[in-house]
Computed example of a mutant assay.
Amino acid sequence: MRYKIVGLLALPFIINSSCTHNAITGRNQLTLVSEEQVETTAVTEYKSFLSKSKVVSSTGSKDAEMVNRVGTRIANAINEYYKTKGLTNELANYKWEFNLVDSKEVNAWCMPGGKVVVYTGILPVTQNEAALAVVLGHEITHAVAGHGRERMSQSMLAQGIQIAGNVALGRDPKTLNIFNNVYGPAAQVGVLLPNSRNQEYEADHYGLIFAAMAGYNPQEAIPFWQRMAKMGGEKPPVFLSSHPADEDRIKKLQELMPEALTYYKPVSK
């Protein structure tokens, strides 16, 4: 009991000392693991996932070529945005990769360091490059804004796992499990409330900007999410989910659109 009391008394100090200020979003984030640690683990886990998946070769596949083309433009836009903010060094270790995986799952994700996967199942919903750009802008924002590290840190704190000192993600089964439950194909939503909803809105916000800077019409986000809403399926109430309700998200996107359009300069394919 004494140790528990000491731990509770030390908790505010641990949280305060482990918070960092995100220069892009302007929000303080709990960061018990470094960007270097998660990037190193991401490389290993990304390669492992691809080795077990049906990766669509960009040779002879227009869809795979599109994913790589859109992803590269988004990455270039993000690099330019960070450059204008004097934050180029924050993306110095990013080695961008964009792969299309043959799967009916309607999903896409980005691991730290720019390791991106798009599932073929989402392409019938995106329907065009601009909507795909919105999706990739959103998912990549989660990575560059440190949302995964934040969620990992919150989970580690909740479980009392090595909340001080270096964490060897690749060698610690508990922390590696947390990594896989935050990033990529094993990720689950609805665990961390309500901060994850803040993360979703941040990803929507900057995802629109990055898509626009890449030369894609950010207004395609509205019909895309309307199509997602029409897909139906069981959805938890908004207060139980980390993701905003469809109508709330669309309303927020409409509010963000005027700002995003200031960045929009169409480019030819």
Rank of each mutant, 00 (worst) to 15 (best):
R2T: 12
R2H: 13
I5Y: 11
G7E: 14
L9E: 13
A10R: 14
L11N: 08
F13H: 10
N16E: 13
S17N: 14
C19M: 15
T20E: 13
H21F: 15
N22G: 05
A23E: 14
R27A: 08
V38H: 00
E39I: 15
T41S: 11
T41W: 05
A42D: 01
A42I: 11
V43D: 11
K47T: 10
K47F: 06
S48F: 10
F49P: 00
K52M: 12
S53I: 07
K54N: 15
K54W: 06
V56T: 10
S57A: 13
S58F: 06
N68C: 10
R69T: 11
R69P: 00
R69Y: 10
V70D: 00
G71A: 11
A75V: 12
N76S: 14
A77P: 00
I78T: 08
N79L: 04
E80A: 14
Y82W: 14
K85F: 05
T88D: 13
E90Q: 15
A92P: 00
Y94M: 08
W96S: 06
W96M: 11
L100T: 07
D102Q: 14
D102H: 12
P112L: 10
G114W: 01
V118D: 02
T120R: 12
T120H: 05
G121N: 06
I122C: 07
A130G: 02
L132W: 01
V135W: 00
H138Q: 07
I140H: 00
V144E: 02
G146F: 03
R149F: 06
R151T: 08
G160A: 09
Q162H: 12
G165N: 08
L169H: 02
G170M: 12
R171Q: 15
D172G: 08
P173C: 09
K174H: 11
T175E: 04
L176P: 00
N177D: 15
I178K: 04
N180R: 15
N180W: 00
N181Q: 15
A187W: 07
V189N: 12
V191R: 13
L192S: 09
L192A: 04
L193D: 06
N195K: 13
S196I: 05
Y206S: 06
G207L: 03
F210N: 01
A212S: 11
A212H: 01
Y216S: 07
P218M: 03
P218G: 05
Q219R: 13
Q219Y: 03
E220C: 04
A221E: 01
F224V: 04
F224S: 01
R227Y: 04
R227W: 05
A229P: 05
K230A: 15
E234H: 11
K235A: 13
P236H: 09
P237G: 08
F239V: 07
S241W: 10
H243Q: 09
D248Q: 12
I250C: 05
K252W: 03
L253D: 02
L253H: 02
L256T: 02
P258L: 10
Y264V: 05
K265I: 08
P266Q: 07
P266G: 08
S268T: 14
